[in-house]
Design a protein around this nucleic acid. Structure first.
Lengths: 245, 245
DNA sequence: CAGTGGTCTAGACCACCTC
DNA sequence: AGGTGGTCTAGACCACTGT
């Protein structure tokens, strides 16, 4: 199979990760074709000078990503379907950027306000507590795609208007040291009101995709609540998901 | 902390799984409160008579589920947010059932037809190849919720009309030995046409949620293509997702 | 500094699948 | 029967966190 797998023991990168990454790249580039059987774990370990548990750890990471399947008595195979990303937090900005769409953002509003009831509930604050509200219009090629309204606990992020026009909110939050851990989102549909229709350049009554989301950091603290509206003619949510037995 | 953790070495259930399950139940029942530090891995291993790798394997499973967080130099903590299910394949029937909604199904059509182009592409078949088509109306309390149109490769499932009226498609597929592994779905919105409006008891032009999905088994073979329409006034997709660093 | 999780090793036995 | 992954052990050293 001559995959030229190697590990560098002098590197600070964990050995299992070095191996896992090389296998992942080989699968992405088609050097390991769907259905291919990896050599058995003992042989792989031997040829790389690693122990079997380390090789297993590398393989397990790719099984968790859905790229490999293990079968007892058979071996480890490359999955036949084209798994892309195992479902990440949908970041509209990064999604559009990855699709080569060159997104732009117009900041419509940026203020500190009393939290509306549903926002206070989502962020675990007292009703009426202060929160940062930001309202943005996201566009590609000058065409509006979505209206984004977000609420953040005060003090979490020094929100900068020009920074917001150049990148996505999540990237700013990560850069400020907030590590996102989980999120709950609800996706629905509704008809455009006159106000939203004008902002999004759709006729009144046009179907819009709506998404409400609460995101948490790794201590379980709510760090963001968002209520977004998307033009259904220009955007749809793409999800890839894995089913665990 | 007196959690009364025990393992049964005579059981065929893997030790790491026994431990993992007990911790999971303790978290669900609130016996391990959010923020609680688990004892360190060595002590846990010693008190249970297990090796550290086995204890780590148990903990890792819960970290992957988003229930625990590990911090080097600190310890392993119960996550503070209320993680529900880590996002399963959305099965409308099972979702409604779990919510106590007593779903019912009306089978509108069940036939073998030539695959439309998008279906053939999704299922990896030649254009015009034969597929099983089923069209169902899903209701709760006599109210329509969704119009479900599915395509299956012929021969995969002996589709039984009465069975379809009593349960969900995925449950039937699992019972027939098909193990689902991954799926791609796209969620959008559109306005109700006259035909769909009548079936779903909505006005013409009402916003509907749409979902297209291709599901694969663990060999990567496409096993189902679905194109569904939901009443936006009665249904929304709830997703819980974890962000991996 | 002491304590934590992160990584790694070199074995072992077992359950399952294919031939 | 032979080969595969699944589980488990008893050690070891390191990197990071808190005091």
């Amino acid at each position: 199979m001559d995959l030229e797998l190697t590990v560098d023991r002098a590197s600070p990168v964990p050995l299992y990760y070095q191996l896992s990454r090389q296998l992942e790249v080989a699968i992405e580039r088609g050097r390991l074709r769907p259905g291919t059987l990896l050599g058995n774990e003992m042989r792989l370990a031997g040829s790389l000078g690693l122990s079997r548990p380390t090789v297993r750890q590398a393989i397990q990471a790719l099984v968790d990503k859905g790229l490999l399947v293990r079968r007892r008595g058979v071996g480890t195979q490359v999955v036949r379907s084209q798994v892309k990303r195992p479902l990440e937090l949908t970041s509209l900005y990064e999604d559009l950027e990855a699709a080569g769409q060159r997104p732009t953002t117009r900041v419509l509003d940026l203020a500190t306000v009393a939290a509306p009831p549903e926002v206070a509930a989502a962020l675990g604050l007292a009703p009426g507590a202060e929160v940062r509200r930001l309202e943005r219009l996201r566009l590609t090629h000058g065409e509006p795609i979505a209206l984004l309204r977000n609420y953040l606990p005060v003090g979490l992020l020094a929100v900068d208007r020009t920074a917001l026009e150049g990148t996505g909110l999540y990237r700013l939050m990560r850069a400020a040291g907030t590590t996102l851990h989980s999120a709950r989102q609800s996706i629905g549909a509704r008809a455009a009101t006159a106000e939203y229709a004008e902002l999004l350049a759709e006729p009144v009554g046009a179907p819009l995709l709506s998404m409400e989301r609460t995101a948490y950091d790794d201590t379980g603290r709510p760090v963001e609540y968002g209520s977004h509206l998307y033009r259904a003619t220009r955007y749809a949510f793409e999800l890839q998901l894995l089913i665990r037995p």
